[in-house]
Design a protein around this nucleic acid. Structure first.
Length: 351
DNA sequence: ATCCCGTCCG
DNA sequence: CGGACGGGAT
């Protein structure tokens, strides 16, 4: 065990946070926690983890669950493909692995939704394999300590980081080492303003000794955001409203939403009423539009959604609504998994 | 504004 | 290999 590994593990035993998934080696629990924690901060993932395990305590309950129920649990967490892939993989494990989680990295990585990071995490934590994890935290820690200015965007860069990690990961308790270096990145070696003066590794850290902490790791180039215009319509018909399921390969796939008219540009309600979609929606009806409407810019990593939600009351229905949307009691809306944007809206609208 | 940097898909 | 995929925290 190298000095650096030893320092990290000792630091970890002293400063680690108590987290529910750290009390187990059960691969199912580790899997659930690792998937939730991808792209998600620990604090945010906490309650999702509890709800998930409560609702789906084992692989079997997940495999036989309804995807709608799973997405309801996942609502607001984002990256919904994670939930869809988990559902698929749970069934895959029941059908093709006798319901037993594979115990080897090479098998784990074949599963849908499990890539290099998650396969390494499960293999090391649950099955004691010395497979180093490389996530954003580890990337930062290694880049700074060893002074690596390569990007992990490219395979060559990733290999370099992996090679270093493979050399310092101990054979004994590799899972603890993996968690230690990630926790160190999350708490000590933070992206901004890390507390280097009080760091146990400052004497061996390349970035610190060369005054390059701000420059390492290499910054990711930012992506351009596409602007989209979403006009949602909250239709009220007696005690009912109308929703639809998003099935295209687009954001929020398999989540539910209010009737949507997406436009090329920002449109006023007057111009929205002139669109073909609007006229189809309300053909033969006399929609009463609430003069108050909801307006919000919803920012995603890769899209900016300029959103309006209009509340519209109708007294009769037409075939188009009945054929293309789900007519549901408004009171049952909370049962459906919907995008955060609409969740936020409904909180205001139903007040 | 910048961080999440994981995985899949085309 | 490059782009798509959410939403919150800081």
């Amino acid at each position: 065990m190298t000095n650096i590994s030893k320092s990290l593990v000792e630091w970890y035993s002293r400063y680690k946070r108590d987290l529910p998934w750290r009390e187990t080696k059960n691969p199912y629990h580790i899997w659930v926690s690792e998937i939730i924690l991808q792209q998600t901060r620990v604090n945010q993932g906490f309650n999702y983890y509890y709800r998930f395990i409560d609702k789906f305590p084992d692989i079997k309950s997940l495999a036989f669950s309804n995807i709608d129920d799973l997405l309801k649990i996942w609502q607001g967490l984002g990256y919904y493909s994670r939930a869809r892939n988990m559902h698929f993989t749970a069934q895959d494990i029941i059908n093709n692995y006798d319901g037993e989680f594979p115990s080897d990295y090479s098998e784990l990585i074949k599963l849908k939704g499990i890539g290099d990071y998650t396969a390494s995490a499960i293999a090391s934590i649950s099955f004691n394999q010395a497979t180093p994890v490389l996530d954003g935290n580890v990337f930062r820690v290694i880049a700074r300590i060893y002074g690596i200015s390569e990007s992990t965007q490219r395979n060559a860069g990733k290999k370099h980081f992996k090679k270093i990690l493979q050399e310092i990961i101990p054979d004994e308790n590799p899972g603890t080492f993996n968690q230690a270096i990630m926790e160190f990145g999350a708490l000590q070696c933070t992206p901004k303003n890390p507390d280097c003066e009080n760091c146990i590794l400052k004497s061996v850290c390349f970035a610190y000794t060369n005054n390059m902490v701000a420059e390492l790791p290499l910054k990711k180039q930012k992506i351009t955001q596409r602007i989209r215009y979403f006009n949602y319509i909250y239709i009220i018909y007696k005690d009912f409203t109308f929703i639809e399921k998003r099935t295209n390969n687009d954001i929020w796939k398999l989540l539910y939403q209010l009737p949507l008219i997406e436009t090329e540009n920002k449109v006023s309600i007057e111009n929205l009423e002139k669109t073909q979609e609007w006229n189809q929606l309300f053909e033969g009806l006399e929609p009463e539009i609430d003069i108050n409407f909801y307006k919000k810019k919803h920012i995603l990593s890769h899209q900016i959604l300029v959103t309006h939600v209009y509340k519209v009351r109708i007294n009769t229905m037409n075939d188009f609504l009945l054929n293309n949307y789900l007519k549901i009691y408004m009171s049952t809306l909370p049962k459906y998994g919907i995008p955060k944007l609409l969740e936020n809206y409904l909180k205001v609208a139903n007040k």
